[in-house]
Nucleic acid binder design. Sequence first.
DNA 1: CCGTAGGTATACAGATCTGTAAAGGCAAGT
DNA 2: ACTTGCCTTTACAGATCTGTATACCTACGG
Lengths: 210, 210
Amino acid sequence: MTSRSAGSERPKAEPPQSAPPLTPGARRILDTAAELFYERGITATGVDTVAEAAQITKRTLYNRFGSKDALVTAYLRERDERWRALVTEAVEERAPGLPRLLAPFDVLTSWTASNSRGCAFVNALAELPDPAHPAHRVAAEEKKWLRALFVRLLGESGLKGRERGELADQLVCLHEGALVLHSLRPGPAALRPARAGARTLLRAKGIGAG
Amino acid sequence: MTSRSAGSERPKAEPPQSAPPLTPGARRILDTAAELFYERGITATGVDTVAEAAQITKRTLYNRFGSKDALVTAYLRERDERWRALVTEAVEERAPGLPRLLAPFDVLTSWTASNSRGCAFVNALAELPDPAHPAHRVAAEEKKWLRALFVRLLGESGLKGRERGELADQLVCLHEGALVLHSLRPGPAALRPARAGARTLLRAKGIGAG
DNA sequence: CCGTAGGTATACAGATCTGTAAAGGCAAGT
DNA sequence: ACTTGCCTTTACAGATCTGTATACCTACGG
């Protein structure tokens, strides 16, 4: 739980698990559940509510997903998948020379346009304290992944050793904090300070950031 | 909701509301509820559970607090009160010349020793999305207060204008992020990067930080 | 033609949740 | 002596929650 030995500082290539294709009904269920879980909270959203909003019967929901816990896990998994894809793309498609390390912060601008309730994974951790819950693991993995991404990019920028891990943690902090601020006062202005702070911290370590 | 006109950049002297003295039973209820709400989540903790753990009857609980929502609000209010007192004390009792702006970060070290489930206010916001819920307001106020504190201290350090607000936001981000990191991997090590990052950001603005 | 997969409709079991009802015990203050 | 405040006990109403049972419809591929 505390630290991993070997590959923990390198983001895995694949998002944890490639999802099997969903039936049309399952697709609609998952989309609906995703919105409701995020917007109203997981525990506060009942399966009846999801089923009704998705315009399917509860029976179908249980046939496709088996349980509410499984549905919650699927929701977080897919969200994780999309988020990683978005960030990965933003990092890779950056014009060379431009600060790839700030890409995750820039992604937030579009991401938060339709997500003003903070970080879904932090929220999930708040509602599902049990570490044995699979959804708990997914949420924890997402944070580890972002940190590992920062570590990798910092490595490519020439930073090594203990300083690298510390700076990665700081970038994660700013990132998380930005989402909290945004949830309190939605709007692009809530994200700017974190990005600027990241740039300052990078510069302080001699990493040019634009 | 978005911004306040006059005194929003100055921390109010009094924690929102001075609590009336509690009966012994009410005291035990509130203590028990505080621990359970924080540790297991608010929605996931029923009033029966609270009553049983506090060794009082549900009737007493309702006689003292009126409703679960009111109990939740009382829980957050008291937590807010204690947190503010702790931070305020740490700021004021700092040896002159020492970086008072880092005091909130130092307080986290002792605070998180018994609070490894992240920020109770962020968690509450996750579980209670309705902005009309009084507990929601309490949580939002807490964040505003911390920012205002940073703004004030930065002002005393000679920083003014737009830069001041931005730096305050950055410190809040680091602060929140530290709590998230700590919830993922509890221990004092989770807090160090945020504190160090704060120092770097302060130095970058010419504010000596120790 | 027939089986299978995806979905529908309705009803229900069993647990748990918030909140209330009714009646009483006990100690302190006046 | 009498009230008032704090708390207890037991029971229950009514809603809501997760999950299941039963039976049926429809489209499609072999």
